[in-house]
Amino acid sequence: MIEREATVFVIDDDPSVRRGLERLLRSAGYLVELFASSREFLERAQCDQAACLVLDVRMPGQSGLELYESLVGGGYDIPTVFITGHGDIGMAVRAMKVGAVDFLPKPFDDEVFLDAVRGAIAARSRSRGDGKRRHPESFRSSSQE
């Protein structure tokens, strides 16, 4: 499967949650890179290798949402699944607007999570098939399909 070769980047400040997500993704056959904060991600992540981003919204320092906005603003277009300890509608809307693929409130079921990651990677493949970079607006319209 294509999935087995894909690498998922996980960014969460909670070590236990981080390790649990890594194990789930590994059991599903993904390669996983773990980051404890936005700053760590920006320091050592090689975004080209990322098939998908799993991003915690609330973290000390730069929040997940802010990190994602800066990535989009910098031209990086990585399909992203947001996870949050206390999601609310406003936050979900904002995440989707900037191009998130999915938004999961913690705690979540393993199948739901893996489906979301799978969906994100698939979205990336489709956009690669177009052979051009997408604008956030077009991303949004496609995600609404």
Partner: peptide, 17 residues
């Protein structure tokens, strides 16, 4: 929520393993 999420995620991963 953090520990609960950790527990759930890890437990489900364990089941898969």
């Amino acid at each position: 929520n953090q520990p609960l999420t950790g527990i759930l995620t890890n437990a489900q991963a364990a089941r898969r393993f």
